[in-house]
Design a protein around this nucleic acid. Structure first.
Ligand code: FES
Ligand code: FES
Lengths: 172, 172
DNA sequence: ATATCCAGGATATAAAATATCCATGAATAT
DNA sequence: ATATTCATGGATATTTTATATCCTGGATAT
C-alpha cells in the first residue's frame, strides 16, 4: 500500500491553480519549476487530471491549465482517483477457489467475507477524502501557514499566470 | 494505491489457521497448495506474519504454523501492516519547499495542510480495519458461506493439521 | 541418523513507477 | 496565408518495486 508521488504533486498543483484569477491559466512548466519536479513527468499527471475533468487545458502560446470547476466542488478523492485510478486498493483474487479441490461455481456465488470487510474499510477511506474539499485546503493554508509562504505563493502565480484575453472574454 | 497480493494470501492463511484445534499446526506448503500459490513466495509472507507476532512457527517434522493469539485479538489491520509495512500510504515529500524560491526553514515549521488531511483519511481506513477481527471473519464465513465450501475447508485442515503432542503439552 | 519443516539470504523475472524525448496542433504576429 | 512560438499528448527509456525461485543452515520428531 503506497501512493505514488504524483498524488502529492497533483494536489499541490490544484491548490496553486486555485489562486489564479478568473479564466486565467498557468503553464505546466511553471508549476514544475515551483515544486522542483521534472516538467515532462508532471505533465503526465496534469494530463490525467484533465482527462478526469478536474482541470481544463488551453493549448498554444498563452496557454496552460486552469481548474474546471469551483474549489468547493473538487475533493481530494477526485484527485487521488484521477492519479491512482479508480480500482479499489484491495482486489479479491478469488484464491479461495484456486486450490486443487475446486467445488462447483455455485458454491462461490456469494462474495467472500474478506473482500466485504476490506471494501468497507476502503469506503471509509474514500469517504474521508471526499470530505476534504480543495477550498478547505487553500483556506486553511491562508489562515494557518507562515505569512512568508503564502506571500511567496501568491507572488509566484501572479508572475506566471496568463490572463485569457481576446475571444473568450468577448464571447461571454 | 494498490495492496500487494500477499495481503489476501495472508488473510486467508490466518483464517484457515483459525480452524486448527488446540496447539496444532499447519505446514506452509499445505496452505500454498490450498490456495494455488507458489510455496516459496508464500513462506515469505508467513514469515512476515511470524515476525509481527501474529503467527508462531514450529520447525521440524510435525511442524508448521499456528496463530500466536486468540482470533478475537487479531485484526485485519494487524495483518495488513505486517505485510505492507507500517509506513503511511501517503508521505509528505515537502515539495512545497523544493522550488527555486526556497524560504528560510522556519517558514515551514508547521506541517502542511495537505498532509494532515491525507493522514486523517488514512486513520479512518486503519480504524475500520482495526474493527474487523479475525473471529468475525471466520464466524461470518461459517454462517453465510455455502455449506459445501465450509465443509471442504474443514476437511482440508483436518487432513493436514499436525497435533503438537509431547513436550509442550506435558510442560504445561 | 534421517526425514521434514521453517528461517534467511542470494538471485532471477515481471510489473510498475519515474523520467525523458519528440511529433502534433493551436494561437499569435507578421 | 505563412511562419513562429509554445504547450499538449503520445511514445520511449530508465529506475524502482513487487513477485517468484532457489539454496544453505538450523531445529525437531521419528
Ligand atoms: S477469495 Fe480471497 S479475498 Fe475473496
Ligand atoms: S509539502 Fe506536499 S504534502 Fe506536505
Amino acid at each position: 500500500m503506497k501512493l505514488s508521488e504524483g498524488v502529492e504533486a497533483a494536489i499541490h498543483c490544484a491548490a496553486m491553480l486555485a489562486g489564479v484569477e478568473g479564466q486565467g491559466t498557468l503553464p505546466g512548466a511553471a508549476m514544475a519549476e515551483a515544486f522542483g519536479l521534472s516538467p515532462s513527468y508532471l505533465l503526465k499527471h496534469l494530463n490525467a487530471l484533465t482527462a478526469a475533468g478536474i482541470l481544463e487545458s488551453v493549448p498554444g502560446p498563452a496557454g496552460g491549465y486552469r481548474l474546471a470547476r469551483a474549489t468547493e466542488r473538487i475533493t481530494l478523492l477526485d484527485i487521488v482517483l484521477a492519479i491512482e485510478g479508480r480500482d479499489p486498493a484491495f482486489r479479491c483474487g478469488e484464491i479461495r477457489q484456486c486450490g486443487p479441490a475446486r467445488l462447483d461455481a455455485s458454491a462461490y456465488a456469494k462474495p467472500c467475507g474478506i473482500n466485504v470487510a476490506m471494501q468497507k474499510a476502503e469506503r471509509a477511506y474514500r469517504a474521508a477524502l471526499a470530505e476534504a474539499r480543495l477550498s478547505d485546503i487553500v483556506a486553511k493554508h491562508m489562515r494557518d501557514a507562515d505569512p512568508r509562504s503564502v506571500a511567496a505563493n501568491r507572488a509566484f502565480v501572479e508572475r506566471h499566470q496568463r490572463p485569457q484575453k481576446s475571444t473568450k472574454q468577448t464571447e461571454r
